[in-house]
Amino acid sequence: EPLWIRPDAPSRCTWQLGRPASESPHHHTAPAKSPKILPDILKKIGDTPMVRINKIGKKFGLKCELLAKCEFFNAGGSVKDRISLRMIEDAERDGTLKPGDTIIEPTSGNTGIGLALAAAVRGYRCIIVMPEKMSSEKVDVLRALGAEIVRTPTNARFDSPESHVGVAWRLKNEIPNSHILDQYRNASNPLAHYDTTADEILQQCDGKLDMLVASVGTGGTITGIARKLKEKCPGCRIIGVDPEGSILAEPEELNQTEQTTYEVEGIGYDFIPTVLDRTVVDKWFKSNDEEAFTFARMLIAQEGLLCGGSAGSTVAVAVKAAQELQEGQRCVVILPDSVRNYMTKFLSDRWMLQKGFLKEEDLTEKKPWWWHLRVQELGLSAPLTVLPTITCGHTIEILREKGFDQAPVVDEAGVILGMVTLGNMLSSLLAGKVQPSDQVGKVIYKQFKQIRLTDTLGRLSHILEMDHFALVVHEQIQYHSTGKSSQRQMVFGVVTAIDLLNFVAAQERDQK
Rank of each mutant, 00 (worst) to 15 (best):
E253M: 03
S313Y: 01
V332E: 01
A506P: 10
T279V: 11
G304H: 00
T456L: 13
T279E: 13
S428D: 12
L417W: 09
T385W: 03
G403M: 08
M419R: 11
V472K: 03
I444E: 12
Q329S: 04
D282I: 04
S348Q: 07
G441N: 14
L306G: 00
S246V: 00
G493M: 04
T389S: 09
V319K: 04
I396G: 11
K286T: 02
V494S: 05
P388A: 13
G403T: 10
W284G: 00
E250R: 06
V409M: 15
G493A: 12
V319H: 04
V473L: 08
K366G: 09
Q354A: 06
G268A: 01
Y342H: 05
V339L: 11
G458M: 08
D467C: 07
L325V: 05
V472I: 03
D411L: 09
L276I: 07
K345P: 02
L305Q: 00
P336F: 00
I451L: 13
L464G: 09
D405E: 09
L422G: 08
V333Q: 02
D411E: 08
S287V: 08
L380W: 10
W371L: 08
S427V: 06
G441M: 12
E412F: 10
Q489V: 15
P368H: 06
A505L: 03
V275W: 01
I477P: 03
M352N: 00
N288T: 06
G493H: 07
T261N: 05
G441Q: 12
L347E: 01
V375H: 08
H480L: 10
Q406L: 06
E291D: 12
R350A: 14
L305F: 07
E291F: 09
N502R: 13
Q450R: 05
Q326I: 10
G266V: 01
I477W: 06
V420K: 01
M298L: 15
V504D: 10
V491D: 02
V473P: 08
S461E: 12
E252Q: 15
Y269R: 02
L276M: 08
W371T: 11
G403H: 10
Q489F: 13
S287H: 07
A382F: 14
Q478P: 15
I396Y: 11
Y479L: 15
E253S: 10
A318G: 14
L500T: 13
F503Y: 06
V415N: 04
M425R: 11
I477T: 12
E465D: 14
F357V: 01
W369E: 07
P368A: 08
N255L: 02
I390T: 13
G441H: 06
P273C: 00
H372V: 15
E412W: 09
T391C: 10
G312T: 01
G379K: 12
E401N: 13
V281W: 02
H468F: 12
E265N: 02
A505S: 14
R340D: 05
P251F: 01
S428H: 03
I498F: 08
Y445N: 08
T421Y: 07
W369N: 07
G432V: 14
P251A: 04
E360N: 12
F357G: 02
G309S: 05
H372G: 13
E291P: 05
F503T: 14
A316H: 14
T454C: 14
L325E: 02
K367N: 12
G245Q: 02
F492G: 15
M298G: 10
S338H: 08
F295W: 14
G493T: 10
D277W: 06
L306Q: 00
G403V: 14
F346A: 02
T344Q: 07
G432N: 09
E377L: 12
A321S: 06
D510C: 15
K433M: 14
S485D: 12
D289K: 00
Q354M: 09
K286L: 01
P336S: 11
N255C: 03
T314P: 10
F293N: 00
I444A: 14
V264K: 00
I272S: 07
Q435W: 10
K402Y: 07
R350C: 06
E250Y: 07
P408T: 03
K433D: 02
D270W: 00
S481L: 10
V333E: 08
R340E: 07
P383D: 06
F271W: 03
N288C: 12
L248F: 02
D362S: 05
K442E: 14
D510L: 11
E244I: 10
L460Y: 08
Q476C: 09
G266I: 02
I267F: 02
R350K: 14
A296E: 05
E291A: 14
S481W: 04
V317I: 11
K449V: 07
V495G: 15
T260W: 15
A316V: 07
I334D: 00
I477Q: 05
L429F: 15
K286N: 05
R350E: 04
P436E: 15
L501I: 11
D405V: 04
D282Q: 14
R452M: 13
H480P: 10
Q435E: 14
K484D: 03
L426E: 05
F295N: 06
L358R: 08
A249G: 08
P408C: 06
G266N: 02
E290A: 06
K449N: 11
L422T: 07
R340P: 05
F503L: 14
L384P: 03
E475H: 10
Y342Q: 01
G393T: 12
E401T: 06
F492A: 12
D405T: 10
E265I: 00
L464P: 06
G423H: 07
Y262D: 00
T421G: 03
P436I: 15
V491I: 14
Q489A: 12
T294P: 06
S348M: 09
T482G: 03
A505M: 09
Q354K: 12
G483V: 14
T364I: 14
K433Y: 09
G356I: 05
S437F: 14
Q329P: 05
D242A: 02
F404A: 08
E377A: 10
Y269I: 02
A407S: 14
G418Q: 08
D411R: 13
G312R: 05
F448A: 03
R330T: 11
A311T: 13
M466I: 15
T391Y: 02
V275R: 00
L460Q: 02
R350I: 10
D405M: 04
L363Q: 08
R340L: 04
S381R: 12
V339P: 05
A322G: 06
Q302T: 10
E401K: 14
D411Y: 13
R350D: 08
P436W: 10
L378A: 12
L363Y: 04
G418M: 04
D337W: 02
A506I: 10
K366P: 11
F285H: 11
F285T: 06
V443H: 04
E397S: 06
G328M: 08
S428E: 13
Q354L: 14
S428L: 12
Q354H: 11
I396A: 06
R452Y: 14
G379E: 12
L501K: 04
Q478L: 13
L325I: 07
I396S: 14
K283H: 05
C331P: 01
A497C: 09
T257V: 10
D242Q: 02
Q256A: 09
S437N: 14
L453K: 12
L363M: 12
K367R: 15
V495Y: 10
I390W: 11
I498T: 12
A311P: 06
G403L: 04
K286A: 02
S310G: 02
W351Y: 02
L248H: 00
H372N: 13
A296V: 04
T294D: 05
Q259M: 11
A318R: 02
H474G: 13
C307Y: 06
D242K: 03
G493F: 13
E244F: 07
L384V: 13
V440Q: 01
G268F: 00
S381A: 13
R452I: 04
D411P: 15
S381I: 13
T385M: 09
D362N: 06
L501Q: 02
N341C: 00
G309I: 00
S461N: 13
V375M: 13
S313N: 05
L464C: 10
V504W: 10
E327H: 09
T314S: 14
Q326S: 13
T261P: 15
T496L: 08
N424F: 11
D499R: 04
Q487M: 15
G245V: 02
G328V: 08
K512T: 12
K484W: 15
K345V: 01
E265R: 00
T456V: 15
L399C: 08
Y262R: 02
V415I: 14
K433E: 12
L380S: 12
T395C: 06
T496W: 02
W369A: 11
R350S: 13
K442D: 15
G268R: 00
D362P: 11
V264P: 00
N341M: 02
A470D: 05
E250C: 08
R459N: 10
Q439G: 10
S428K: 07
T482R: 14
V275A: 08
G393A: 15
I477Y: 09
Q256I: 12
V415G: 14
W370Y: 05
S338N: 11
Q439V: 14
I416G: 10
H394G: 11
L378Q: 01
T456N: 14
S485T: 05
G304L: 00
V434K: 11
D510K: 11
L305Y: 14
S310C: 01
V415E: 15
